[in-house]
Design a binder for these strands. Structure first.
Lengths: 91, 91
DNA sequence: CTTATACATCGAAATATTTGAATATTTAAA
DNA sequence: TTTAAATATTCAAATATTTCGATGTATAAG
């Protein structure tokens, strides 16, 4: 993972709303629907869409269309790689 | 570690210059001097000072004065706690 | 085919971040 | 005690991010 990617993922994680989205996966084990995120956050739909886009662009979330709905799953591999880079900082 | 802290650390990590500073510890194993960071980055002294402040405010770096000089050490404990929070996201 | 639902995009305002010139502060050296 | 060196602070400009209203697009339902 290069520094540009580390920077992008870090930026995606640097917002309270986006952290809340990711933590919601702990409660809804496998996946989260876009509509559920709209209910979770105290923001308008375009703002939620913006935050989800940051997480998808960082590849922390993988989107899957289901008709009119959008389902997200956590990208554990990218998260693992990011954690590995941080672990390397510790020598 | 609460979400505010996760947010602050993530933001501190979301900049190419600050990532470069942290990675420099891999080469200079124990500590880094402020002057070394000024040499490392292609920025003016006030800008470097700003970036170091972000890292210190996030407690990723611990500053130690040495006369006129300033020495930084990596705060491995905070880094470990941050990594632990990210690991928890994976269920 | 028309309408409703789910989500995305655009545009603009508000806010935050990054940067550097100028200057201040602290401490060591002369 | 004057001067020089290392770092911090202030201020303003440039840029980026966040937010939301308005609107667009895709798909399902009637």
């Amino acid at each position: 993972m290069d520094n540009k990617k580390i920077e992008k993922i870090s930026r995606a994680l640097s917002d309270a709303n986006r952290i809340a989205i990711l933590q919601q996966f702990k409660k809804k084990k496998d996946c989260l629907y876009c509509a559920e995120v709209n209910d979770l956050l105290d923001l308008t739909q375009p703002s939620v869409s913006h935050h989800l886009k940051q997480l998808v662009d960082a590849e922390l979330l993988l989107p899957q269309k289901e008709g009119r709905n959008l389902k997200y799953v956590l990208n554990q591999q990218v998260l693992d790689e990011y954690i590995a880079c941080l672990t390397e900082l510790k020598d």
